[in-house]
């Protein structure tokens, strides 16, 4: 015959089983986190998270691409016409409203620095006044950005990301 479950012992046994199961589940969860987290960026990837660029050679109206965190960063030396065109746009026309001032640093309005990754699905937009708004155009799914890198038309939801950066001198900028 199997054990008699009507004895008072049964309640204690239930308690022991539940406790053991709860401990087992906790243990499994505790082990699961390191497994999951091991797939996140490792220390060496995180360590390469800033880059220094010499911008003295970039003429007005010119733009360069540099690598930062494995992604391209656009550095554009804007013309006065670029800046004016951007400032003239009313905020109500923008999908992701941001003023031109909010996209650049004060006193350095000619330098537009952005991560060159389309906010739709991550392609690199084409530059040099491409697209309908003379800024950038993403060929993958047809997003148009203006001279301040703001989304104007197409599927992308937000403006091109402006990373953290500081001008370490008049000719040098550190991104990240």
């Amino acid at each position: 015959m199997s054990a008699d479950h009507s004895v008072p012992d049964g309640e204690r046994r239930d308690f022991i089983i539940l406790t053991a199961q709860a401990m087992g589940a906790l243990g499994a969860a505790a082990v699961a986190w390191p497994f999951v987290d091991s797939l996140n960026p490792s220390a060496d990837v995180l360590a390469m998270a800033s880059t220094e660029v010499d911008i003295s050679a970039i003429a007005e109206g010119q733009e360069i691409k540099v690598m930062w965190r494995g992604k391209p960063v656009f550095i554009r030396h804007r013309t006065a016409a670029d800046i004016e065109a951007s400032k003239a746009v009313p905020l109500s026309e923008l999908r992701d409203p941001q003023t031109d001032d909010a996209r650049v640093q004060k006193g350095k309005e000619q330098w537009l620095i952005m991560v060159g990754v389309c906010t739709h699905l991550g392609c690199v937009p084409l530059g040099n006044m491409a697209g309908e708004y003379k800024g950038w155009f993403c060929p993958c799914h047809g997003s148009h950005y203006d001279t301040a890198g703001r989304i104007r038309k197409g599927p992308a939801p937000t403006n091109l990301l402006v990373p953290q950066y500081v001008f370490t001198s008049d000719t040098n900028v550190r991104i990240g």
Partner: peptide, 12 residues
Amino acid sequence: TWLWGGFSVDNP
């Protein structure tokens, strides 16, 4: 970021 193991598609 977790899928990539970095900030872009790369070696990891």
